[in-house]
């Protein structure tokens, strides 16, 4: 694996929300090894730095897409990139969702805000191969309607149940209002035969995963994607520790059976 960033070029770019964009990237020369859903790259903005970003699309014709919210120096620099601009990528890193272990199961995919981005390649694989899985449920929550990513695509996914809810509806929202956990009542799954994939803000992950376990889904079948500061992604910088877990190496996707006690300890 390359230890230095590999040049990629922005071949498409679109706004997801007011502070979130997606960059579609193609390699300038040799590509990185193929990404799997849930794995991540260190995305490098020249002269600014690197951040870890999960892959938000794995196009069949090569390349990769990353969905980035402008929250710091590097993410802001990346959000300013235009078509034709260059970025660097290192990766792929991390565990991924390991969708292959959920074949034949009912699926419960739960996203909060930009947490839908790392789940998008997983959902696309699932809806492209519906016979491999049981009932598919996609539950999406956001703060406001304006914070929903992939809003149009969500409605196109053929699922047993798709729910979208927002905390603060505004004047024109006609859908569900409230926390994403409320949508679990509408989801169709056999808890004993289900695998869940959850990504979003930590309080949302905890509430959702606890609810799923409470409904009978085995904790190790509730996979959560967690986030910590990362500098190297190769297990050497120490920043991404969550107790015993090095999230770049043992995560970012881990089972809630491991995550629950770690998430329960404040400031771990």
């Amino acid at each position: 694996m390359s230890t230095v960033p590999v040049p990629y070029r922005v071949i498409d770019r679109w706004d997801e929300t007011r502070d979130t964009i997606t960059l579609r990237l193609d390699p300038v020369g040799e590509p990185l090894a193929p990404f799997a859903p849930g794995r991540f790259a260190m995305v490098y903005a020249f002269g600014v730095g690197e951040i870890p970003v999960s892959v938000s699309s794995i196009p069949t014709d090569g390349g990769v897409a990353h969905t980035i919210r402008a929250v710091g120096a590097v993410s802001e620099a990346l959000c300013r990139k235009r078509v034709g601009d260059a970025v660097g990528l290192r990766g792929p890193f991390g565990t991924g969702w390991q969708l292959e272990t959920a074949r034949g199961q009912d699926l419960v995919v739960v996203a909060g805000g930009i947490g839908l981005a790392p789940l998008r390649p997983l959902i696309r694989r699932v809806v492209a191969d519906p016979r491999a899985y049981g009932r598919v449920n996609v539950l999406v929550g956001a703060r406001t309607p304006a914070d929903l990513v992939s809003r149009v695509e969500i409605r196109r996914w053929a699922t047993a149940y798709t729910g979208v809810t927002v905390d603060h509806p505004g004047a024109y929202w006609r859908g569900e209002i409230g926390l994403v956990t409320r949508l679990l009542d509408g989801a169709q799954f056999d808890p004993g035969q289900a695998t869940a994939f959850v990504c979003g803000p930590e309080p949302m992950i905890r509430a959702t995963a606890r609810d799923l376990v409470h409904r009978g889904v085995a904790a190790d079948r509730v996979r959560v994607s967690l986030e910590r500061n990362m500098r190297c992604a190769t297990g050497h910088c120490g920043h991404c520790q969550l107790g015993p877990v090095l999230l770049c190496r043992d995560g970012p996707v881990i089972g809630f059976d491991r995550a629950e006690p770690l998430m329960r300890t404040r400031e771990l």
Partner: peptide
Amino acid sequence: AGELTVCP
């Protein structure tokens, strides 16, 4: 041209 060349 904006191309990046990265050298370890």
